[in-house]
Design a protein around this nucleic acid. Structure first.
Lengths: 216, 216
DNA sequence: TCGTTATGAACGGTCGTTCATTCATCTATG
DNA sequence: CATAGATGAATGAACGACCGTTCATAACGA
């Protein structure tokens, strides 16, 4: 009832209307924010008229929820592929940080919606699903931190708090990455990975004879 | 022309209408977001009718800009009071982190507006002013980091990048601080300070004989 | 009285959504 | 193959609601 049938077929002109709506809505929501985008704007960007959207989505809220959930599904699937489930916490933390930064540099629109428009998503079944997916993502990082803390390798005060803090730090990339032309993708990733690793008390980069002096 | 005369006088019932509007608008914007709050909502919360708001503010945009700028003014003034302008970068960094976390725990509504509603603020004189104030704040932290890096005490890849990252990290508090009942204010602050200090490569807390082993 | 503030109706717009209708395409039948 | 019905998508006008803002008017403190 929430969503129209999920089959995305192509119409006579070879366009996939449903995908076009999603694509344009994503770009517009990310650029102006949910509240500042009208269904007419989305329709125009997608090359159709206002009424046609309702053949594919139950409404504006359904469209937003669809974008968020599909983004989070893809994000979690990619995370599982990029970060080993077990093993050395240090390597897993590095993999997580590297993955998160890379994903945010590649898909800034998806990410900014899922982060900034949570308030625009009305409570309900879909809202709860979105929050559950977000919690699952943060939970992966919290588990890594907790494993590292338990084995004495990480200097972390509280795994859950730090997971939230590190995700906030790395997600902030989307705020200033517009003018990040001065830094290459590799440099940005390396900087963030270094900060994350150091934030749990590790010496980073590995192999560097960083002074251990507690000189004040 | 932007704002009505700044004199905030009390009306016959002893209330300060202008302050009431600001207070209620702040709470509503923070709770629902700028776009989801109407001038009628604000008027009702402030105990007046819709038209009366325009005796005190030129419009909805002017109201938002006023809230942001006044918040940033207070934030910067408090920052200058809390963080020494010169001296040991390590102490200044600790002071900055402690101040920032404390302020965000105390004034979550002001902070969430200045961070999340930047998109809702239309460009122009006021918008530029807001951005300038935000840059000034981040600049204070960047200077501390740069001083620490230059004197070899901080292990930081790029002061400007790290300043943005640390501010994003510490500002994320407002996202989850709703359910932070499990942690005291002091504990949260200590955790964040520790993460910040460690993120620049320092051993923290001070005086702890944390292992310096680069064991992998 | 004078200046400031509050009122509440009104204005022009825009919003999300609905709906009768048209149309192109697919499928089943002869 | 030809035809008729079924299906789903696109249209564009319309609806009621709400938006930010204006303004003539009234009330009230100094």
């Amino acid at each position: 009832m929430d969503t129209i049938a999920d089959t995305s077929r192509t119409d006579k002109r070879g366009r996939d209307t449903r995908s076009a709506i999603r694509k344009q809505a994503l770009a517009l929501f990310a650029e102006r924010g949910y509240g500042a985008v009208s269904m007419r704007d989305i329709a125009e960007a997608a090359g159709i008229r206002q009424g046609a959207i309702y053949n594919h989505f139950a409404g504006k809220q359904d469209l937003l929820a669809d974008l968020m959930i599909s983004h989070l599904d893809r994000l979690l699937a990619a995370l599982v592929r990029a970060v080993p489930a077990g093993g050395d916490p240090m390597r897993r933390l590095e993999a997580f940080a590297s993955f998160h930064v890379g994903y945010h540099l590649d898909q800034p629109d998806d990410v900014v919606i899922a982060d900034m428009e949570l308030r625009s998503l009305e409570a309900g079944r879909r809202g709860a699903e979105v929050h559950a997916l977000r919690d699952r993502y943060a939970g992966v990082l919290a588990t890594i931190l907790e494993d590292g803390r338990r084995t004495g390798r990480f200097q972390t005060p509280n795994a859950k708090v730090q997971a939230g803090a590190l995700i906030a730090m790395m997600t902030g990339i989307t705020v200033w990455s517009r003018d990040g032309a001065a830094l290459t993708r590799e440099a940005v990733t390396a900087h963030y990975v270094q900060m994350v690793m150091q934030s749990v008390g590790l010496i980073w980069p590995l192999g560097e004879e960083a002074g251990c002096s507690t000189a004040q």
